[in-house]
Design a protein around this nucleic acid. Sequence first.
DNA 1: AAAGCCACCTAAACCGGTTTAGTGACCACC
DNA 2: GGTGGTCACTAAACCGGTTTAGGTGGCTTT
Lengths: 339, 339
Amino acid sequence: MTPRPTINDVARAAGVSKGAVSFALNNRPGLATETRERILAVARELGWTPNSRARALSVSRSFAVGLVMARPPETLRADPFFPSFIAGLESVLSESGYALLLQVVPEHDHELRSYRRLAEEGRVDGVFVTDLHVDDTRPALLAELGLPAVIIGPALGEPFWPAVGVDDGPGVAAAVEHLVGLGHTRIAHVSGPTAMVHGQSRRDAWSRAMREAGLPEGPFAEADFSAEEGASATRRLLDLPEPPTAIVYANDLMAMAGLSVATGRGVDVPGRLSITGFDDTELAAHVQPGLTTVSTNVLDWGRAAAERLLALVDGRDPAPTELDPPRLVVRGSTGPAPS
Amino acid sequence: MTPRPTINDVARAAGVSKGAVSFALNNRPGLATETRERILAVARELGWTPNSRARALSVSRSFAVGLVMARPPETLRADPFFPSFIAGLESVLSESGYALLLQVVPEHDHELRSYRRLAEEGRVDGVFVTDLHVDDTRPALLAELGLPAVIIGPALGEPFWPAVGVDDGPGVAAAVEHLVGLGHTRIAHVSGPTAMVHGQSRRDAWSRAMREAGLPEGPFAEADFSAEEGASATRRLLDLPEPPTAIVYANDLMAMAGLSVATGRGVDVPGRLSITGFDDTELAAHVQPGLTTVSTNVLDWGRAAAERLLALVDGRDPAPTELDPPRLVVRGSTGPAPS
DNA sequence: AAAGCCACCTAAACCGGTTTAGTGACCACC
DNA sequence: GGTGGTCACTAAACCGGTTTAGGTGGCTTT
């Protein structure tokens, strides 16, 4: 209620100039140790904290970074990625006194405008870019705006852009290999949108793994990561004259919906059909049968992305970060191929 | 790359003082229409946007509001609430030029510090308070800090605090009534943490509905909204000498885990056991059998909360917002009580 | 004793907006 | 023809920090 003290109040109370207070706060050389301590003591006593708005103006930095999520609310709803990812970001950002500014926009078009606005108004010092499309115009826009950015996700194409992400490939490959080891030969894939980088990269990984196992590619169905489309893709695959004996889904949500479609039709899992997911969501361990899936350390991923962006903002050299490779978690939804 | 133009550049180019530019921008009276238009034209031509940092300092506002989420990452992971809720917030905030500042902290203790810091540094003009505990100290802290706040969730106790939320009660009651109508008499409840307001309020609603149906309360198991505890609570209930014929869960995640436990044990759903959830997550419609659950309009909820906070920040009278009441969605997981 | 040099601190400019007090021109009125 | 009142605008203070260019006093140096 009482107005917060300003640097002037502290200076007056300590009998020094406000410059001195600033020096003491940011412990810069040029102050006698005794003076510095006296100033800090007074500041503590008055309960003074520097006003971030004033600081932001004078140093021309906002000490905030932005995350824009462009998804229809429906797709957003059950996404297991963001909460953990954001927790990872935060653990690094808050440590450095940075805040995370979140924007949710309904369409890609709005997203471009969001970035532009964030940059032009000087709200953020850098941004994270997620859900990259294969022909995404955002990197170009951000370069034009001169806004430091870190791309979240597998780096596809432009390698000079700093992307941070676990490579999905080995995870999908591990799932395929696991199934091949169980004797499966007709292994289908239900992908996310192949117009998006992480949809495409998982799809590619599946193709490659099949090729490397010396198998034909098997049926493929494109979906959009939602339960709805996961279910309908599964129906299409099961309706094939020669249905697959295993399906590799691009995420857990679609896999769980597919699992229900199968059991609802009386198709035994894993007796007649094996199923794998991707994400290792909490529920995956608790469906019947338990879902074999790929687990990635999203928290660490967030941390790495934040560190990278802060380095970029500070003009430091971003240390190349090593992330845990994805790990296959085998549960009950996969079993030997039917004979 | 080239430094953004400032208000001074615009003033010089238009041949007026910077005050005039400011007046034109915020279209305040006292400028000839012709002058105002000339200034705006010049501004547009130079591509000038007012710097929000400077604006924030001079008007002593940050044009940002904060949302602090204090949850262990595990609980956070699969929460269907936040993504939609945030989308709702955003739709209102961005309209008014406000930004959403997100903080994720691992513990409740950190959360208090987060709020304090946000307020003291002047980063935000107001905050949302979620996951209220029954003995929560945050309202007191925020009052002390003089920070406008809107509590998200059912208002339990302190009615003078502006809370925005759908009342869970009718939703849970509808589920119980639906089951009673199907002939069930032993209806159990698996709750969230009763130390939290929304855990407690759903539990209370269940008790009340049972009482009003003239039934004894039936077995109760406290859990924490997670799939893990939902599953173990279900096991405890099914192990009872006289197991319930229906279970009302406080959220979908626990209900789906419970559903799997039941089917895994060979307990037919809904033949021998009926199950209801709460949230109407995307997957609820796609499990086998489909989950009967309670749907709330979380997007609208977010919108209402944002409108309320902005009103509070502006010192306007917050219009009382009407939210859609929760709606029971009947699917296959509920059926007639076994005879 | 004048000059030189630190070490320590102050005064003032600056960041880029908003806001208030004030000024000059113009017109109306008595 | 002086007074009063608008209108349209400018100049300058202000928000609360950071930063730079001095300034002061004491101690060495020659």
